[in-house]
Design a protein around this nucleic acid. Structure first.
Lengths: 385, 385
DNA sequence: CCAATTAAACTCGTTCTACGAGCATAAGGT
DNA sequence: ACCTTATGCTCGTAGAACGAGTTTAATTGG
């Protein structure tokens, strides 16, 4: 029997991780990045070719010297299915080892009943399973709600009760990675978006309430059961207000359409997202004043999180971007005002997310690829070939 | 020339990490924990003995079977110097690879002037350098203040201005790891204290204000420049109050002696720590009421952090322990009240820190050992022998 | 158009870690 | 005394990665 040596596919795994993070990276670039000798590079790529994980294509020559090759996913290599469940629609894509999407599609929900939506997802998993067979290794799913150990605990946007998401892959034997959509869009930003390369990044996204995640070297701090990142439920607001989450004074209630409606003395909106967009269109002074209050609450909350976590960069998504844009100077003032003095000389930049609508799907794909490129997954794949 | 193979001392490093975390662990236990074959265990320990990193001593027999050996630090092996700078005193200890302390001492400051204190630390480093020579590899320092890239940015407890801590090891060529005392005591808890084994742990300590850290697998989330963990400077409090840190509404101002004094309508205390202890002694209703308010602010803030980070466990240190004990039911109520509903069925336990006065020094030692047991450090040590 | 230059790939012998299988050893139990 | 059990030791084997030397495929410049 072949001895399964500790670290047997270590370098191979590192190479694949590089490839998945920087699609169409060259072999020479990988070798440089991992400080591999040319001999080792030759050997490891040959091995990866043999087991149908990578293929090589001649790279366009870049000046003098022997041209290098582009590392691509093998046409018979392993794939993952990434799913993004949204309020009004869902998306799916097959991801290959080089991080590229195939069969990318987006469909509207005909019914929003959990059973219907989940069975649509199941059907998609089943289809991918049929088309790709043993090449399909793992399914990852982004969902708009609090997720704990692959269970959807609360999803106010969808209006769903607690729900086991494992049913999506039930019967296929495929491993599922379910994650919060805000968390996963944070992963996308930290890997290939506005926070790329940051050691510590904070991602915040406003839709209904605020969600987000702290990312350390591109890895989200998901907590004990994966339910981390509910920054909207810290008591940064008015303690007399009760949040649907069960707690009081939640930040959530200060920074979205519900807060705008309160400031405008209007009834609580059914769809706080659309309501916020509508208020942002208005130019009257009352509306502007409401927006300013919300933006100040957003910025000072962010400042507190900067004090707490000292990130290299903060990325904003969803309504946080237009909100901030609508009151740029308010944002800046409240942000600086909330920072500890020593942070003020070089405050971490607050950037707009670059992956906008694709964030959750990209992030889900990234986590799936982390799994595909892990040593055990490679070893398992090799054992089958 | 010997090829420096990737992962050359990988297993050796793993073994040393085990030894440093569980002093007087047996060789057989290490082999089991790392899933090493007996052959590999024999080989790796022999290698570590050869390079003077470990020694073996016969272990007391534990029932049937051939008795195993205890792995101990080699008497000529590498050591680290751990320092803990406090308000009224400082401590030092030499740490060996098995995590045990030698030359543990504690001295009061004669003067608290930065120059005097720092030169005392320098002298201690110099002494250790003379006594241990090339065996001394690294110095780690815990300090009560915000630390960024080995600079002390603000230290309200000490009353010091910004200060470069690198001077402590200047001239010796030794690498310094400086860290916030609350962060380091969190490391101690997560490694060998009340949060041992927790994947995600939150440590909070009240002295003057509140400090702490989020720990993921025992590693503190220190942020971009190491200044992370300032949870006391999130705006959980009254926005009209200005904090010495420069921000407003800081949680800090709600949970220590300053808050108690406000509630009691007394003047802001010079020494909020001692003041808190004094108020905790009092049994009159006014004092009790003030304590209750502070405890509620503490507990609901903690609940918000639980929502945000979903830790397995929270550990409390410093005055947080007697404060909570003084109003146990208030704490419990406010804690549960601030949690999102789904957390309430099994809220993460809030435990008292077990390392109490030694926390920062233990944590500093732990981080120093992380460095000593790292592959590059081992390779460097081996190259010299 | 043919060197010269350059960067990268390939070949090969070597080193080193870790493995597994089998054997040896030191305790407790009968 | 002999069995059982847990552990340590020996040894042959395999795989990964290295370095040095060689080859290859591009650009550049005469």
């Amino acid at each position: 029997m072949t001895p399964v040596r500790r670290g047997q596919w270590q370098t191979a795994s590192d190479v694949l991780a590089q490839v998945s993070r920087q699609p169409s990276i060259t072999r020479a670039a990988v070798a440089r990045a991992l400080r591999l000798s040319t001999g080792s590079a030759t050997e490891v790529t040959a091995r990866l070719r043999d087991v149908r994980l990578l293929t090589e294509a001649p790279a366009p020559s870049q000046g003098r010297g022997r041209p290098t090759t582009l590392l691509r996913a093998h046409p018979q290599g392993p794939v993952a299915l990434a799913l993004d469940l949204r309020q009004g629609s869902w998306r799916s894509a097959i991801v290959t080892l080089d991080g590229s999407f195939q069969d990318h599609q987006s469909k509207r929900h005909r019914s929003r009943r959990p059973q219907v939506v989940i069975s649509n997802l199941q059907r998609e998993v089943g289809r991918a399973h049929q088309v790709y067979g043993a090449r399909l290794r793992v399914v990852s799913l982004a969902a708009p709600g609090t997720i704990r150990d692959n269970r959807l605990m609360q999803a106010p946007t969808l209006g769903w009760a607690e729900l086991d998401l494992e049913t999506v892959t039930a019967g296929t034997g495929l491993r599922l990675f379910a994650g919060n959509d805000a968390t996963l869009s944070g992963v996308a930003e930290a890997r290939t978006g506005a926070a790329a390369g940051a050691g510590t990044a904070l991602h915040l996204i406003i839709e209904v309430g605020i969600g987000g995640t702290l990312l350390i070297d591109g890895v989200p701090a998901q907590g004990a059961s994966g339910a981390g990142g509910e920054y909207g439920h810290m008591a940064l607001g008015d303690r007399t207000r009760i949040c649907p989450c069960g707690a009081r004074g939640c930040w959530d209630l200060e920074i979205d359409g519900r807060a705008l409606a309160r400031h405008l003395k209007e009834a609580a909106p059914d769809d706080p997202y659309a309501y916020t967009e509508a208020v942002l269109q208005r130019t009257d002074r009352t509306a502007r004043r409401a927006v300013v209050k919300v933006v100040a609450a957003l910025a000072s909350g962010i400042a507190g999180l900067v004090n707490a976590h000292d990130p290299d960069v903060i990325t904003l998504g969803g309504l946080a971007i237009p909100l901030r844009a609508a009151a740029e100077s308010t944002f800046e003032d409240a942000y600086l005002d909330g920072l500890m003095t020593f942070h003020r000389t070089a405050p971490p930049p607050v950037l707009s997310a670059t992956h906008q609508p694709d964030g959750p799907l990209r992030g889900a794909a990234a986590l799936a690829l982390d799994h595909l490129t892990s040593e055990p997954a490679i070893a398992a794949w090799v054992a089958e070939h």
